[in-house]
Design a protein around this nucleic acid. Structure first.
Length: 436
RNA sequence: GGGCUCGUAGUGAAGUGGUCUAUCACGCCUCCCUGUCACGGAGGAGAUCGCCGGUUCAAAUCCGGUCGGGCCCGCCA
């Protein structure tokens, strides 16, 4: 029966069977140490029999082996236990040396990212890389748990669409049996429609954006954590996002502390209720502090986003901050303007450690108003098959509702402290990269 | 789309006109080594310095083009 690396200490004195990948060889003459990697981590094997060592001659890291040996308690071994009197069986020999190292940390310098991604198939076996994606897996799990705890229903919506509808970002056009189709930029309309069904829904799925952006925070395909809920106000939305971010942070630091520490991540300081600052106020503060005026601008500059996060960290006790009161002139047709201040949109952006990780807003739920906004703000045709389902839902009874989209990779990047969002992506897609 | 910047063994780096027949580290190969865990030691193989053209007695190094990256801005998650 196979024993996993982390269970070795429970089998001291027994002869056990281990299966995994050769991860490291250290030959000291009469004594050889090898590390075997399995899904839990590494197990150290000590081999004295030269004939057993010879079985591994010429074989590279990655070779798939089984080891039968005696589990020994040994304080000098990592984890306090190791295997002795090992019998090695090579299951899959590997003679090609890896193009990129997998037993030492890989370079994440911006100039070297291309190499990092080029050799992803083997480079991801590097335990430092693995740690990033174990954390990401935990983030996804935590987010999902939080949604369920708040009575959300998980949904799946199509990514192949008839037409570009949402507006804003560029869309990918593809050939669909001779017709033109597009790839979804977001599940926006579908999740709103589903509020009429389930009241609270979420989806964690890829979205596609054909923007020719070449920055450390953009990709053409990324995972969007989308939530949408009915019978709420913008305050409820902020409260939910505060709860979500705090829950995820606490969860990963409880369950993945070793991974996070190995990546030199620090646990973020987050206010239970993440502080809110209006865009106007941020412009004012930034202008006062930096002498460069951004007053009146309809968006935050990237540098402003970084600065306000520093500010919030120092003065408001939170490394995340909400940006509220966005100008209505820039809002999308399905957004809702503030009831008492129609020049402002009921929208909020969540900034975390210098970047925007989520955008949320209240949606216009009045059919007549949505219809008007669609025509006037988006120049859209209500009879377009892309708009019809949403409008039908509006006609069929939609409560006040709102929701958000959050970038999983950006969230991962910021929790860990990676420089580029692509480092938090197994196989990143950007304007230049379509493989591996 | 605009601006800036980089390209040297499998990987990461040094070298900014001549002694470069290109240096170092990791990895790889051979040998030594009984407590390694970024093991240590001795030796070895591996690079037409992204590509094309130009300047020069002489180019990895200077210039032009080209291809491929990266960073910032716009836009966004």
């Amino acid at each position: 029966m196979r024993i996993l690396s982390s269970d070795l200490k429970d089998h001291i004195g027994e002869t056990v069977h281990v299966e995994g990948w050769l991860h490291k060889k250290r030959l000291l003459g009469g004594l050889t140490f090898i590390n075997i990697r399995d899904r839990r981590g590494l197990v150290q094997v000590v081999i004295k029999d030269k004939a057993e060592v010879e079985k591994l001659r010429g074989l590279q890291i990655g070779t798939v082996v089984t080891i039968d040996g005696k589990a020994i308690e040994e304080p000098r071994a990592p984890g306090g236990a190791e295997l002795h009197d090992a019998v090695v069986t090579v299951l899959v020999p590997v003679s090609e040396e890896p193009s990129i190292e997998i037993d030492k940390p890989l370079s994440h310098r911006p100039d070297n990212l291309d190499t990092l991604f080029e050799y992803r198939a083997v480079g991801l076996r590097n335990l430092q890389e693995t740690a990033i994606f174990k954390v990401q897996s935990a983030i996804t799990k935590a987010a999902r748990e939080y949604f369920y705890s708040q009575e959300f229903t998980e949904i799946r919506t199509p990514k192949l669409l008839a037409a570009a509808t949402e507006g804003g970002a560029e869309v990918f056009k593809i050939d669909y049996f001779g017709r033109e189709a597009t790839l979804a930029q977001s599940p926006q309309f579908y999740k709103q429609i589903m509020v009429g069904v389930f009241e609270r829904v979420f989806e964690i799925a890829p979205v596609y954006r054909a923007e020719p952006s070449a920055t450390t925070r953009h990709m053409t395909e990324y995972i969007s954590i989308d939530g949408e809920m009915g019978f709420i106000s913008i305050k409820d939305l902020n409260e939910f996002l505060s709860g979500l971010l705090n829950f995820v942070s606490d969860y990963i630091w409880e369950h993945n502390e070793a991974d996070l520490k190995s990546l030199r991540a620090t646990k973020p300081v987050l206010a239970k209720a993440i502080p809110e600052i209006s865009m106007e106020e941020i412009h004012k503060l930034y202008t006062e502090a930096n002498g460069e005026s951004t007053i009146g601008e309809k968006d935050l500059r990237p540098d402003e986003e970084r600065w306000i996060c520093e500010y919030a960290s120092k003065n408001l006790g939170s490394e995340a901050v909400f940006v509220t009161d966005w100008p209505a002139s820039d809002m999308k047709f399905y957004h809702k303007a503030q009831a008492d201040k129609p020049e402002l949109a009921d929208r909020v952006d969540l900034l975390f450690r210098g970047v925007e990780i989520a955008t949320g807003s209240m949606r216009e739920n009045n059919y007549e108003v949505v219809l008007k906004q669609l025509k006037e703000m988006a120049g859209g045709n209500p009879d377009d098959e892309g708009f019809k389902p949403l409008l039908t839902a509006m006609q069929s009874g939609m409560p006040t509702h709102g929701g958000f989209g959050m970038g999983l990779e950006r969230l991962t990047q910021k929790f860990i402290g990676l420089n580029n969002v692509k480092e938090a992506t197994l196989f990143p897609r950007d304007i230049n990269r379509l493989a591996p």
